[in-house]
Amino acid sequence: MSPAEGATAERATAERATAEARRARFGALPERVAFADMVEERPPADRPTGAYDPDGSSVRFSCLAVDLGL
């Protein structure tokens, strides 16, 4: 066996050992979560979309000058 082949074999053995250590420490990956389980569907709000809502407008528009009345 040439020195290059010996280094390759040692490297493969080291990679296997680290993979086994990693599996022993962390275990298996968790099961995949289905997309349907990640999505929550809710009906739209009952309030009209054109109605004035002072609390809702502050969410869309925030400006320090307006807050200070300048």
Rank of each mutant, 00 (worst) to 15 (best):
D55N: 11
Y52K: 05
A34N: 12
R60A: 12
A36T: 10
A28K: 12
R42I: 04
E41I: 09
R47D: 03
V39C: 01
A14G: 03
D37S: 09
E41K: 02
R32W: 05
A34F: 04
E20P: 02
A36N: 07
A34L: 12
T13V: 08
V39I: 13
T18E: 15
G27R: 06
R60N: 06
D55K: 09
D37H: 06
P54G: 06
A51F: 00
T49S: 12
S57Y: 15
M38V: 01
R25P: 02
C63F: 10
M38N: 00
M38E: 05
Y52A: 09
A19W: 09
A12C: 10
E20H: 07
D55T: 04
P30C: 01
Y52M: 07
G50L: 00
R32I: 03
R23T: 07
R23M: 09
V33A: 10
F61P: 00
L64T: 05
A17P: 08
A17E: 15
F26D: 15
V33D: 07
R47G: 00
R16W: 01
V33M: 07
A17G: 08
T13R: 15
G56L: 12
V39Q: 03
A24L: 09
P54T: 09
P54C: 08
P30K: 00
P48Q: 07
R60D: 13
R22A: 05
Y52C: 02
P30M: 01
E10W: 13
P54D: 12
A24M: 06
M38Y: 00
C63M: 07
R32S: 11
E40A: 03
C63I: 03
F61N: 10
M38A: 09
A36K: 05
R47F: 04
T49L: 13
V39W: 00
E10R: 15
G50T: 01
T49G: 11
A36W: 02
R42C: 03
S57L: 14
Y52W: 12
D37A: 10
A51Q: 07
S57G: 04
P48L: 06
R22C: 02
A24Q: 13
S62W: 14
D53A: 06
F26L: 13
R25A: 15
A21L: 13
D46I: 01
P48Y: 02
P54I: 07
S58L: 13
S62H: 14
D37R: 06
A65E: 14
V39F: 00
A28F: 05
A17Q: 14
G50C: 00
A36C: 08
A34T: 05
A45H: 07
R32F: 06
E15K: 14
A14Y: 04
A17V: 10
R25V: 06
E41A: 04
E10N: 14
A14I: 02
V59C: 11
M38T: 04
R25N: 10
L29V: 02
A51W: 02
T49N: 09
G50D: 03
R25I: 04
V33G: 01
P54Y: 10
P54Q: 08
D46S: 09
E20D: 14
R11T: 14
